[in-house]
Amino acid sequence: MLADKAYGAEQIREMIQDQGATPNIPRESNRRRRPCFSKRLYRERNLIERFFSKLKHFRRLANRYERLAANLLATIQLASMRLWLRAHEFTA
C-alpha cells in the first residue's frame, strides 16, 4: 500500500500488515526504526495522484452529480477514456 508520511503511524502500518498488504510509507524524520521503503515504488504514487487531479477537472465528477454507483463508475470510465485518448492522440 502506498501512502504519504501522514499515514506513517505504527498503528496504521500494523493494520495494513494485518490485512495482508505491505506498507510503502516514507518514514517520519523523528522515527528511530527504519521501516522498509522503496523510492521507485513510491514515485508511481505520483502518477495516481495526478490522474485523480485530472479527473477532478470533469465537472460532473468534481460535483458528484451521480448518485448511483453504477452511473458514477460509468462516468469515471468515460472521463478516463477521454484522458487516455487525449494523452495518446497524434497530429498527422
Rank of each mutant, 00 (worst) to 15 (best):
S53V: 04
R34G: 02
K5S: 03
A9P: 00
R43A: 12
L78I: 14
D4C: 04
T22A: 09
F52A: 02
M15V: 06
D18V: 02
T75G: 02
R50D: 02
H88C: 14
E66I: 02
S38E: 12
A87L: 09
A92M: 12
E66H: 11
L47V: 09
A3H: 00
S53R: 11
L61A: 02
R40T: 14
R60T: 08
R32V: 12
A79L: 06
R32P: 01
P23L: 09
G20Y: 05
R50K: 15
R67K: 15
R60N: 08
G20R: 05
E28H: 12
A69Y: 04
L68F: 03
Q77C: 08
S80K: 02
F58Q: 07
T22Y: 01
P35C: 11
K5D: 00
L83D: 08
A21G: 07
T75V: 07
C36F: 06
A62P: 04
M15D: 11
L2M: 05
I25C: 02
M81Q: 06
I16L: 07
A21N: 09
N71R: 06
R67M: 10
E10D: 10
F37H: 11
L78C: 11
Q77W: 05
E10T: 07
I25R: 03
A3E: 00
G8V: 01
T75L: 10
R40N: 13
E89F: 15
R34W: 03
L85Y: 13
E66A: 06
M1F: 03
K39R: 13
F51Q: 01
E49S: 07
I25Y: 00
E66S: 03
R40A: 15
R86N: 13
R27H: 08
R33T: 13
R64V: 03
R32W: 07
N71W: 03
R40E: 14
R31P: 05
H88F: 15
G20C: 08
L2Y: 04
R27Q: 13
L2G: 01
H57Y: 14
R82E: 07
E49A: 10
L55V: 00
